[in-house]
C-alpha cells in the first residue's frame, strides 16, 4: 500500500479579508531552519503594501467604533481558534525556527495566552490611561485614549508566532487596524494566523499581512502618508534594513514610531504593562462648562 500524498497549502497574502497572490506574481522560497523546502510564499510588492493600507484605512472606523466589550469578545474568539489550530502552529514554528517540539509548544501556548491577555485589555485601558482632570474652574474635563488609526507592524524576525502576536494584538486592542510585514524568513505562521483571523469575527481589513522582503516593503510603508504609526521591532535582524532611515521616512507625516530594541526581546516574558497598547493611542481631552 502506497503512502498517501499530502495536499499542500498555497501560502498567499491577506489583504482586506481576502487571500490574494502578490499582484506582482512573485513568490520566494521559504525553508526550514535546516534548509529544507517548506513552501513558496508570496513576495509582496510595494503595490500590495499600498493596497493593504487602503484596506486597513477602510476598516478602521468600524473597528474603532465597535464597543470595547465587543472588541474584547472578538479578540478572545481569535484565541479560541488559535487553540484549535495549536498542532499546526507547533509544526510550523518548530520547522521555521528550528526548535524542538517542546519549545515550539511552549511558544504557541504563550502566544495564545498573550492573545487572551491583550483581549482582556479592550475595556480596561481607558480606565487605566484615561483621567478625570480636576481643572481649576467650573468645567467637566475628561481624557481618554483613542486609537491612532492605521499602524504598520514590522513583525519580529526570529519569533514567528509569539513575537508576531506580541506586537500585533496590542495594536488591535483600542481599535487600530494593522498592516503587518511578517518575519521575512519565517512567514508561514503569520499566514496561518491570517487564516485564523479570516474565519474569526475580526472584520476584513482590520489585520492585513504581507510576506516578502522587509527591506522592500518597509520604506514605502514608513513614508506612506495615510499611515499613522509604525512599529519598527522587526527591523532587528532584517536584511538590508536600517531602522533610523525608516524613522526618518516616518517623520514626513509625523508618524508615531516604536523603535526597536538593540536585539530581539525575549517574548516569553509577560508584558509589564499596557505600554505597547498605549504606544498606538492618542489622548483626547474634552472640556465642557458646568452650570445651572
Amino acid at each position: 500500500m502506497s503512502a498517501r500524498l499530502d495536499v499542500r497549502k498555497t501560502y498567499k497574502l491577506f489583504i482586506g479579508g481576502k487571500f490574494p497572490r502578490s499582484e506582482s506574481g512573485r513568490t520566494y522560497k521559504v525553508t526550514s531552519d535546516d534548509g529544507a523546502f517548506l513552501a513558496n510564499a508570496a513576495l509582496a510588492s510595494r503595490k500590495d503594501a499600498r493596497e493593504a493600507v487602503v484596506a486597513a484605512r477602510k476598516a478602521q472606523p468600524g473597528w474603532a467604533g465597535a464597543t470595547a466589550y465587543n472588541r474584547g469578545q472578538v479578540l478572545y474568539r481569535v484565541a479560541e481558534l488559535l487553540e484549535g489550530r495549536r498542532s499546526q502552529f507547533v509544526e510550523e514554528v518548530a520547522a521555521g525556527e528550528g526548535i524542538k517540539t517542546k519549545a515550539a509548544e511552549a511558544a504557541v501556548d504563550a502566544a495564545i495566552d498573550r492573545w487572551v491577555w491583550y483581549a482582556g485589555w479592550t475595556d480596561k485601558v481607558a480606565q487605566v490611561a484615561g483621567a478625570a482632570n480636576p481643572v481649576a474652574g467650573p468645567y467637566f474635563n475628561l481624557s481618554v485614549p483613542e486609537p491612532t488609526g492605521v499602524v504598520v507592524v514590522l513583525a519580529p524576525q526570529s519569533s514567528s508566532l509569539l513575537g508576531l502576536v506580541s506586537v500585533l494584538a496590542p495594536v488591535l486592542v483600542t481599535g487600530n487596524t494593522a498592516v503587518v510585514v511578517s518575519s521575512e524568513k519565517r512567514p508561514l505562521p503569520a499566514i496561518t494566523l491570517s487564516e485564523v483571523l479570516a474565519t474569526s469575527d475580526v472584520p476584513g481589513g482590520v489585520v492585513n499581512i504581507l510576506t516578502g522582503r522587509t527591506a522592500e516593503l518597509a520604506p514605502p510603508l514608513a513614508s506612506h502618508m495615510d499611515v499613522n504609526a509604525i512599529d519598527l521591532t522587526g527591523t532587528v535582524g532584517a536584511e538590508g534594513v536600517a531602522w533610523g532611515e525608516l524613522e526618518a521616512e516616518a517623520a514626513g507625516s509625523v508618524k508615531r514610531v516604536v523603535r526597536p530594541r538593540d536585539s530581539e526581546p525575549d517574548w516569553s516574558q509577560i508584558p509589564d504593562g499596557p505600554r505597547r497598547i498605549l504606544a498606538f493611542t492618542e489622548t483626547k481631552t474634552v472640556w465642557h462648562p458646568k452650570g445651572m
Partner: peptide
Amino acid sequence: VVWANTFNRFDPTSP
C-alpha cells in the same frame, strides 16, 4: 483637545 460650548481653556491638570 475638544472644547464643547467653550474654547481655548487651559489648565495644568489637563493634557
